[in-house]
Design a protein around this nucleic acid. Structure first.
Lengths: 150, 150
DNA sequence: GTAATTTACTATGCGTGCATAATAAAATAT
DNA sequence: ATATTTTATTATGCACGCATAGTAAATTAC
């Protein structure tokens, strides 16, 4: 729970980023998740909705709700996927393409700013730790007693 | 949106940790937020609810809901704060104290496991980057054009 | 070709973060 | 002492992650 625990650092920091992103998105009457979704859609050809979830780290079920609201806001249209009758092709409207540019700037600016203000070696350490956390979680190495913690 | 962006790394990684924590908490019919709250409460003297939010990085308004459900589950009791008629003292029941131990193990095991499997220098880099992100956000240095991004 | 399985959604409910607003009790100002 | 402001807490609504369950279309198994 202290500042120096890895879980707290991830939690507090992600929440701060999310809050900031939501504020920036809010200036355009949008949300963070909508912004991420806009960025995941191919602005030229559209994207099958199955492609979006993995790309942005969102479950299909969460995505479904976001897409619904995006459709209602006129950001996207759904077209039947010619290659799969079950699937849908998500396409950006002109309005959606505009908003996509804004989201892109917001995300780029954040990442560029941080990258310019940390040492390359620190960034490597950051991604190393991130990598280990994800590896240990996805391979369920933590709560199964096959890794010593003492 | 790529694996190598800082925002995506934070988002995906925190969500993975949160999911794992919720699974572990679920084994005890609990949730992650409940576990964090249990850990934030002084098991001996109880804690004024104002102390909990800052300690665990939760807004008072979110906390209020969690505390309500924790009270319903018999994990905590509220006592009037003798020093402040507006405030409440959150105290653990015996049941709450038991569950607190479990939460403690879950959190410790995660942090210990990761620490034992990353290099000290990488961990330092990790916390450096975390520090810069939080600093830039809290001081609003990112979207105000007082920091060069080019 | 029909049946069983898999895959692509969609709907719904819960937990939780945030914003806003309301209430009540300090604390402060006068 | 009374009026104003601040602080502690709760209530409520929206967004969104996840889990579960359901529907429909494709794939496979036979």
């Amino acid at each position: 729970m202290k500042d120096t625990t890895i879980d707290y650092a991830l939690r507090a920091t992600w929440q701060a980023v999310a809050k900031m992103y939501n504020e920036e998105a809010g200036k355009q009457d949008s949300t963070m998740a909508t912004g991420f979704t806009l960025l995941s859609i191919d602005p030229e050809k559209g994207s099958p909705s199955t492609a979006l979830g993995p790309k942005m780290g969102m479950e299909g079920t969460s995505l479904s709700r976001t897409l619904k609201s995006m459709e209602e806001k006129g950001l996207i249209t759904r077209k039947p996927n010619p290659n799969d009758g079950r699937g849908v092709l998500i396409c950006l409207t002109e309005f959606g393409k505009e908003k996509r540019e804004y989201s892109k700037e917001v995300v780029l600016k954040f990442n560029d700013t941080i990258r310019k203000n940390v040492k390359e070696s620190d960034l490597e350490g950051f991604f190393k730790v991130i990598g280990v956390v994800n590896e240990f979680i996805s391979e369920k190495k933590i709560y199964t007693d096959n890794v010593s913690t003492n």
